[in-house]
C-alpha cells in the first residue's frame, strides 16, 4: 500500500509517530538532560499526573480564545460591512485600520493588562485584537468585489442599497469571511497566550511561564501539548462551520 492511499487520520497518526520517534532519538543520541528537552514518555507521564492542574488552566485559556474569537469575528464582520457600505467610512477609517497594523499587536499586551487588569478581559481583548484585522480585511475585500452583473441586475430591479448589501453582497462575500475565520482560529490562541505571558494568574500561558521558572520543563511541554491539541481541534471545528455556511450559500 502506498502512503497516499492512507486515510487522513491514519496519515496524521503516522506523522505523529515519526515526530515522536525523532524527538526520542534526539534525546537519546545527544543525551540531553530533561531540563533541556524531556523525552516524550516523560512528557506523557506528566500530562497524565498533572491532568487536573492542566485542565484547570486549559479551561481558562479555552474560554479566553473562544470569547475572543466570537467577539473578534462579530466585530470584524460588522466593521467590514460598515466600511463596505459607506464611502465616508472607507475613506476615513480604512487607512486608520491599515496604519494600525504597523503596530505589532504584541506590543499592546502590556497596555491591555494595564487598562483591563490581570483577569480574563485583557486576554480576550488580545485575542480579539489579533484576529480583528484578518477577519475585517478578508471580508471587506470580498464585499467590494461583488460581480458587477449582480449589482446591475439588483439596481434595475429597484433594490435599496441595504437590500443589495444584505441579499447579494454579504452572501456573495461569505467565502471571504470564511477564509478570515479560518485564519482567526489559528491566531486567537496566540493572542490569548501572549496576554497570559504578560500578566496573569491562570491559563496555559501562565502555567508555561511558571513551569519554566521552576525548571519543570516536562510540565511546560505538557501544557504545550494541550495547547497544540486544542488549537487543532478549534481549527477543525471552525473549518467544519465554514464548510457548512458555504454549503448553504453555494
Amino acid at each position: 500500500m502506498t502512503l497516499s492511499g492512507l486515510k487522513t487520520w491514519h496519515r496524521v497518526a503516522l506523522s505523529l509517530c515519526v515526530g515522536l520517534a525523532l524527538w526520542h532519538g534526539v534525546v537519546v543520541v545527544f543525551d540531553l538532560p530533561k531540563f533541556i528537552l524531556p523525552a516524550p514518555q516523560l512528557v506523557a507521564e506528566t500530562l497524565w499526573k498533572s491532568r487536573a492542574l492542566l485542565a484547570e488552566h486549559a479551561v481558562i485559556t479555552i474560554f479566553e480564545v473562544i470569547a475572543g474569537l466570537v467577539l473578534g469575528a462579530t466585530i470584524g464582520g460588522l466593521t467590514a460591512i460598515w466600511l463596505a457600505s459607506s464611502k465616508t467610512a472607507e475613506v476615513l477609517v480604512r487607512p486608520l485600520l491599515v496604519f494600525s497594523q504597523t503596530i505589532p499587536v504584541f506590543a499592546l499586551a502590556p497596555l491591555l493588562t494595564l487598562w483591563l487588569g490581570y483577569g480574563l478581559l485583557s486576554k480576550i481583548a488580545m485575542a480579539l485584537l489579533i484576529i480583528f484585522f484578518p477577519v475585517t480585511s478578508a471580508f471587506f475585500d470580498a464585499l467590494v468585489r461583488t460581480p458587477s452583473g449582480w449589482l446591475g441586475l439588483a439596481q434595475v430591479m429597484g433594490a435599496s442599497k441595504w437590500q443589495i448589501m444584505r441579499q447579494i453582497r454579504i452572501p456573495a462575500a461569505l467565502p471571504g469571511f470564511a477564509s478570515g475565520l479560518r485564519l482567526a482560529a489559528v491566531y486567537a490562541p496566540i493572542g490569548a497566550i501572549i496576554g497570559e505571558w504578560v500578566g496573569a494568574s491562570k491559563g496555559l500561558g501562565y502555567l508555561m511561564l511558571l513551569a519554566n521558572g521552576r525548571a519543570k520543563i516536562d510540565l511546560m511541554f505538557a501544557a504545550l501539548v494541550v495547547l497544540a491539541f486544542f488549537t487543532l481541534l478549534l481549527h477543525t471545528c471552525v473549518d467544519r462551520f465554514c464548510v457548512k455556511i458555504l454549503n448553504q450559500h453555494r
Binding site: P147, G149, W150, L153, I168, P171, A172, L174, Q248, H249, R250
Partner: peptide, 8 residues
C-alpha cells in the same frame, strides 16, 4: 447576457 443566478 450572463444568467446572473444567485448560487445560494
Amino acid at each position: 447576457q450572463e444568467d446572473l443566478l444567485m448560487p445560494w
